[in-house]
Design a protein around this nucleic acid. Structure first.
Lengths: 353, 353
DNA sequence: CAACTTATTGGGAGCGCTCCCATAACGGCG
DNA sequence: CGCCGTTATGGGAGCGCTCCCAATAAGTTG
């Protein structure tokens, strides 16, 4: 990396390397871009010079002509509520994205929405930025203006939630939240629970709505009534779990399906304070299988979703869309898994791990 | 954003805008760069065209000549142990960085170390990348090879921990971990605790070492013996808190200073399982004041450090170094605050917030 | 009113790369 | 041994911008 600094002697370019290797600019370019039309010995010689000089081509010059930057963007518009509470989720997702971009030699430009700040400015900055070959859009509400913009400008992008509004034009990587939630709630039903409450996630986000839908379907399939009083709207946060559970306790629920582990933890706290025993009085199932799931008492039964893989697959898909080896829209659902620990009461002896 | 796509009609450039406004390329450039030598009415006309067309100058072309990209990097080499456990820390730090880069119209390139993957490749990719005007280096071990590299290549960079090895050549933004830890432990001493154990952070990282040093100094100042058996080496993780506390309980400690809130939570869990009462049997003080501190029972007494501000100040400093309005090295220590809740036993009635 | 500033504006050069085309080198073959 | 298809190499053009300098317009002054 060689940014400009006062007095900086300019860094090497193709011509310099060419001179040192006794060839032309073009040949060096061919070597760097793995063009086949270079003799083995010439290639060898050039590579040696490149290595010795630690040369790397100027990405700006390259981008100027190729119209490619080898940079993808990751946009997370909804910082405050979601990211900070569910703090495990985003680093993990980013980790997955990072793993794949690294493999494919892309860099990752991160855009975090600011709660306090001008939203319009945020969007404008992203829309005007022309440094990105494509974008991963995470936890965006389904009416996010960027969706329209990317569609209109034909910008490759991948969402990490199920798309709704333009569902047949949008690529995404997600899990089957409906089926997963249904499995979680059905599990509670099989354990004999009948008054099952739920604290939902943010209902502006498909994941939140889908998990609620899964809850509904499980009750319906089991022929149980759908009691609105047992559904508390939350937003994935700890607080919404804590407050929501207080209300559900008044309804004398015997089980809880929480839309995230963080929310479940908030609910656990409320029950602990109320002297309610988990799982004997109330059985609990969470969602995500964050690290925190095993760090509470009792350890949480939950739905494991492959967050890191979600990020990785999204990045992979995006890069293929950018490079044209795949055409959109592509929609991928990754499998989830019900992880049974103690909080649901099905299992008295599972270890913490 | 207008990446290349097959069949894409090339996006607008200065010349196009100039034609539409009836001026020359140069004048448009002057308007965009706020050069004073443009008549008010010309400027007005050009701005209108720019707005109407949604034009933004091609950053690659601009970077090619200015040698500036308006991009800073954020490098976090130590993902696995630190980021995932202490998951609140990094999003918050990034949030702070993002707030400031957004204000100054910089973009943020994120580099996450991969646990499983070729470390050398990671460093090489960063060193070779020439898209960054400067770098923020977070949670790097003090012998991180990037430090040497940035110094050698004269790349502006800022660390968010106290620098050690080249301390008089490196800019950083941190908190006074030593003083903060000392305050925490002194607080325990004032509460009458005498067998105070500590579970340290990662000792390869200055923050970890400094917090241990603060612990030492507090004991020394109070004339208490320094018992090596009461010092358990950890790494900021929940697990190290859980395991570490088991060992400390054998030593019959009456207080714990944990190097992070996550670690404190692990310790709390171990004590809960052992039937040890907090704060009556063992008083606990953590570090960081993460959201989780108020979400456990009892709520954690802890040292609050301004993580978001740390990121923001680091970004601000970096940008000033890049733009030359400040010369390095600059070293900034932000204030911390002892937040007293119930886990130390000093306060029986504080609410959760 | 000529000479001289000063405020605007236009256009050439060049940043470092890729792409295209022209040229050179090289065998193999009739 | 001349001809032709490869294969390898070199150099021009141009991506879209900024910077510099020249040119023009406009205003000032002796």
């Amino acid at each position: 990396m060689t940014p400009f600094r006062p007095g900086n002697n300019r860094s090497l370019n193709l011509e310099d390397i060419a001179a040192k290797a006794g060839v032309s600019r073009s040949t060096v370019s061919r070597v760097i871009n793995n063009s086949p039309n270079v003799s083995a010995q010439t290639r060898q010689r050039v590579l040696e010079v490149i290595e010795a000089e630690g040369f790397a081509p100027n990405p700006a010059a390259r981008a100027l002509v190729t119209q490619r930057t080898q940079v993808i963007g990751v946009v997370i518009p909804q910082i405050p509520a979601v990211v900070f509470e569910d703090a495990y989720y985003f680093p993990t997702l980013l980790q997955g994205v990072s793993r794949v971009t690294s493999q494919h030699d892309y860099a990752m430009l991160l855009w975090l929405g600011q709660s306090d700040q001008d939203e319009e400015r945020f969007y404008k900055r992203i829309e005007r930025n022309r440094l990105m070959d494509g974008v991963i859009l995470a936890s965006a509400p389904s009416d996010d203006p960027l969706i329209e913009h990317f569609l209109r400008t034909d910008t490759p992008f991948v969402m990490v939630e199920r798309a709704e509004r333009h569902r047949n034009r949008i690529s995404y990587v997600s899990v089957d939240n409906i089926a997963a939630a249904q499995q979680a709630v059905t599990h509670l039903i099989h354990l004999g629970r009948r008054r099952i409450g739920t604290i939902t996630g943010k209902l502006a986000i498909p994941d939140g709505r889908d998990r609620l839908e899964g809850y509904r379907r499980a009750l319906y399939e089991a022929g149980l009534p759908l009691d609105p009083a047992l559904i508390v709207e939350g937003d994935f946060t700890h607080r919404s779990g804590y407050e929501g559970m207080k209300r559900l306790l008044e309804q004398r629920v015997d089980a809880l399906f929480a839309a995230s582990d963080i929310t479940a933890r908030g609910a656990l706290l409320a029950m602990q304070e109320a002297g309610v025993c988990v799982p004997d009085d109330v059985a609990v199932v969470g969602f995500d299988d964050l690290a925190t799931a095993t760090q509470v008492t009792p350890p949480l039964t939950t739905i494991r979703q492959p967050i890191e893989e979600k990020g990785a697959r999204a990045a992979e898909l995006l890069i293929r869309l950018i490079e044209g080896s795949l055409r959109g829209p592509q929609q991928i659902l990754l499998p989830t898994q019900l992880i049974i620990r103690q909080s649901c009461g099905a299992n008295k002896s599972t270890p913490r791990t």
